[in-house]
Write a protein that binds this DNA or RNA. Structure first.
Length: 734
DNA sequence: TCATCTAACACTTTTGAACAGG
DNA sequence: ACCTGTTCAAAAGTGTTAGATG
């Protein structure tokens, strides 16, 4: 983690603010949970951390940073999930996100190095329950958890590196294990979170500075669950996640196959009487295959079935007539088991196969090429045990090379099942999902790309929105708010959102009914809605110019209390229980902090936005309090979660000072940051000894070890498969 | 009793080592 | 010796499900 010593405000600053925010709120039933963490820690905070941030030492390279843009590559997929209400499984051992967060960066200085971080922001202070096909608030959120950040394994890398490829955070894992020692991002189950990506300039992993840009994509909000609640989400996941391929209708782990296995288990020992029925099924399959390639595939599959069966039950079935020998073995309890246990052998299914070609081929290119295909007749051990049945069918095998099989089966069978949803990160946004309600995040851009552009050059705030990428491009905030259905989830305790349209921000972060002051200075009003839940919020410890809107805001030299006039009226819902309605998926650029100047005591850190740059908001129904209920948060109310400090299961691990692990920056760097760092190194890059950076990838190892992977490109270090994690709260991760 | 969580399970994909060939 | 491509087994990632937990 980056402690306050490294970046005083890091995680703590805004988080404390956020905590204060919670505390200051009109106390809903759940409120006591939040204040505790703050209150307990408040007293433990070093005095210098409570002091207001000093003026920024110097502005950074605005021109460069302000043009940084981030685009959500698989936005269309996210929108599909968003339209239903994205759920993310969290487990003790850690679970990856799906859809994965895949973005594309532009506007970086190709020569500068950047670190990319991913963290999760609690969207509100509510706990949810899935009831009646909708998510409803059932209470207050649980106590805050250690704030962890996933460091992209490529970090730090040059701007050229980041811009030359799509950046995927698929290795980031979510867990509900509060005692997690792996450094995974810890989340509460049944809570709402908003992923956020930070782009931070860094000379190396230990010396960050220069500027930060934070991006969020509202359609990536999700609810955490330990088991899927909404069947539609389950279907979507199965359809779009290659790892869940087996659960598709044509998969080997489909409901039908599982039922068959179950039945077989129950009927053991073998009940031969079942045979005719299964034969019929297979016959039906063959009749459904209409085109030649499909027939070819089915023949091959049958052949493989036969040969596999023959290999196992040669003595039993060899003398059987072709049809019988072809089908019977496959349905034979034991032979079927043998057949099905081999994933490399496609199994004909009454529902046909390959229902989701686009996803597999685009999102996971290796699927087609590496996915199990029919083993060639020459390599299949079963085929070597040739029988009369095999020789009859071998013709098709020999004439159907693997590529042909793969490709033809995809393209030829697919049309026969047009109703099957093709869900892929690259599937056009407008791909229809018949089984799902029409996405409510309309209009949806064709490619689903969303861009959040941190400011620069006084670009009009809304200009950062890609008109084609945003459902509400160039829409004044107020308009967005008034016209946007409640964010990502249903809001309908008694009724659906359709009957009860609840005005909300596209960002779904706020539903206050009164004017709000944006927590960050110079934030365009259009963006203030993103964090409108914070009222009259004064940023403590925000170094000047360190915080500005992600969109088109010149870096101020001195941070001021939120001056954004982002006030709007947000009619409170009268519903007693908010229910999220998957709906609006407008993209809202997050706050971007540029040119922050880390200092030992009072500068805002890149992570100072954590969790509360997007202040949690309660659901409209819960927001019975008025803005006045949330008095300005005193900058001094900064603390740490004392409950995590000592005595907690987290062991502190300090980062020792050691030389940079990276080769020197390219002398040709023309970056202002580079130059500024040379002129004011102490400011931009304080001594390491003052950086209690805690990398949680391998918490028990010495610090350099978890860093090695970050430099593997330069030093051939070993890369941890899961990337790196940062505990931003100053707590050890175990 | 109920909602929620956990671990085992079967399946699929990914990963990396081993190997062969140029 | 080096590079590239292939193969294969192990590891890891899925949703499902039954049972445990509070």
């Amino acid at each position: 983690m980056l402690s306050v010593e490294m970046y005083p405000s890091l995680a703590l600053g805004h988080q404390r603010v956020g905590d204060c925010y919670y505390r200051e709120r009109e106390p809903p039933a759940h409120m006591p949970l939040y204040p505790s963490s703050y209150d307990m820690a408040a007293g433990a905070m070093p005095s210098h951390l409570l002091a207001p941030p000093p003026a920024p030492s110097k502005p950074t390279c605005k021109g460069q940073q302000d043009s940084v843009k981030m685009e959500l590559e698989n936005g269309s997929l996210w929108k599909h999930f968003c339209s239903v209400g994205t759920e993310m499984i969290i487990t003790k051992k850690g679970r990856r996100m799906f859809p994965q967060l895949r973005v594309k960066l532009s506007g970086l200085n190709p020569a500068l190095r950047y670190i990319l971080l991913l963290d999760m922001v609690a969207v509100d202070t509510s706990r949810y329950r899935f009831q009646g096909d909708t998510w409803q608030v059932v209470g207050g959120a649980e106590a805050r958890l250690p704030d962890r950040v996933f460091i992209h394994p490529d970090s730090p890398a040059t701007g050229a590196h980041w811009q030359s490829r799509s950046i995927s955070f698929h290795r980031a894992k979510l867990t509900n294990n509060t005692l997690d020692t792996q450094g995974y991002i810890i989340l509460h189950s049944l809570h709402r979170y908003q992923p956020r990506v930070h782009v931070i300039e860094a000379r190396d992993v230990l010396r960050w500075g220069g500027g930060q840009h934070s991006f969020i994509f509202p359609e990536t909000q999700f609810l955490t669950v330990t088991a899927y609640q909404n069947n539609k989400i389950t279907e979507l996941k199965i359809q779009s996640n290659p790892f869940a391929k087996g659960f598709r209708e044509d998969g080997m782990n489909s409901k039908r196959q599982r039922d068959v296995r179950q039945k077989r288990k129950l009927n053991e020992p073998l009940d031969i009487g079942e045979l005719p029925l299964d034969i019929g099924n297979v016959t039906q399959i063959s009749l459904q295959l209409v085109d030649s390639s499909s027939i070819l595939q089915s023949l091959i599959a049958m052949e493989m079935s036969v040969t596999m069966s023959l290999s196992t039950y040669n003595g039993t079935y060899l003398a059987t007539p072709l049809e019988s020998s072809s089908f019977a073995p496959a349905t034979h309890p034991q032979s079927s088991s043998s057949y099905r246990s081999d994933p490399s052998i496609p199994q004909p299914s009454p529902t046909s196969t390959f229902n989701y070609p686009s996803m597999a081929t685009t999102d996971y290119p290796s699927i087609l090429s590496s996915s199990p295909t029919l083993p060639s007749s020459t390599t299949s051990p079963s085929l070597k045990q040739t029988s009369c049945t095999y020789t009859t069918l071998s013709i098709s095998t020999s004439s159907s090379p693997k590529p042909l099989l793969s490709s033809t089966s995809f393209h030829s069978i697919l049309p026969s099942n047009p109703q099957q949803g093709l869900l892929s990160p690259h599937t056009p946004t407008n791909t229809s999902f018949p089984s799902l309600p029409p996405p409510s995040c309309q209009p949806i851009q064709q490619n689903g790309a969303l861009q959040a552009v941190p400011n620069s050059n006084q670009t009009p705030p809304l200009s950062v929105f890609n008109p084609t990428a945003y459902p509400y491009p160039n829409l004044p905030l107020s308009n967005v708010i008034q016209t946007t259905p409640p964010s990502l989830f249903n809001l309908s305790s008694h009724s659906t959102s359709q009957s009860h349209p609840v005005p909300s921000l596209p960002y779904s972060l706020s539903s206050h009914s009164t004017p709000l002051s944006y927590p960050f200075p110079s934030l365009p009003s259009s963006l203030s809605s993103c964090s409108s839940s914070v009222q009259n919020w004064t940023l403590p410890n925000v170094s000047s110019g360190s915080v500005h809107s992600a969109v088109s805001i010149p870096i101020p030299t001195q941070i001021q209390a939120p001056s954004v006039a982002s006030s709007f009226t947000h009619p409170p819902s009268s519903l007693p229980n908010p229910v999220y309605q998957p709906s609006s998926c407008s993209a809202i650029p997050s706050v971007s902090v540029a040119s922050f100047q880390p200092s030992a005591s009072s500068h805002i850190s890149p992570f100072s936005l954590t969790n509360h740059s997007l202040p949690p908001t309660t659901c409209p129904q819960n927001q019975t309090t008025t803005p006045s209920s949330y008095p300005p948060i005193a900058p001094t109310e900064i603390g740490s979660f004392s409950q995590f400090n000592s005595g907690a299961p987290y062991l502190p691990e300090m980062v020792l000072h050691h030389p940079s692990l990276l080769p020197p920056l390219d002398p040709s760097l023309s970056s202002c940051v580079s130059s500024s760092s040379s002129t004011t190194p102490p400011t931009l890059y304080p001594p390491f000894s003052s950086y209690p950076l805690r990398l949680c990838q391998d918490p028990r190892s010495s610090f350099p070890i978890p860093l090695r992977h970050m430099y593997r490109q330069h030093q051939h270090g070993h890369s941890h498969p899961q990337g790196s994690y940062l505990d931003m709260s100053g707590r050890a991760v175990f």
